[in-house]
């Protein structure tokens, strides 16, 4: 359920938060999206869009951090070896 796609906010207009709207770029295509649920949105933010509404401003810092953590954990763990017990993936579980 619930196809939602990230897009980059190009513009924000509208005084009243419930009616706030703007253009969002989805990898080269653009559509007018409502920001009623993300009234604090700024141009340049990435938002997650569903049914014409931004459901959330995507936390880019968190995205980068979690991705880097995942890749680091996976990289430390080369195939054939057992996972390094200090990697984040093994934080709660030492056994392979």
């Amino acid at each position: 359920m619930c196809l939602a796609i990230p897009g980059k906010v190009l513009s924000v207009e509208g005084e009243q938060p419930a009616l706030r709207r703007g253009r969002v770029d989805f990898g080269g295509i653009r559509k007018e999206i409502r920001f009623a649920f993300t009234p604090e949105v700024q141009p340049g933010n990435y938002v997650l869009v569903h049914a014409g509404f931004a459901l959330r401003i995507i936390d880019e810092a968190e995205a980068e951090r979690s991705q880097a953590a995942l890749e680091e954990a996976l990289a430390e763990w080369t195939p054939g070896d057992s996972p390094a017990s200090n990697s984040s993936l093994d934080a709660q579980d030492g056994s392979p």
């Binding site: 796609i5 989805f26 990898g27 080269g28 295509i29």
Partner: peptide
């Protein structure tokens, strides 16, 4: 753009 429109 075609890929993105398909995603959307």
């Amino acid at each position: 753009p075609v890929r993105s429109a398909c995603e959307l």
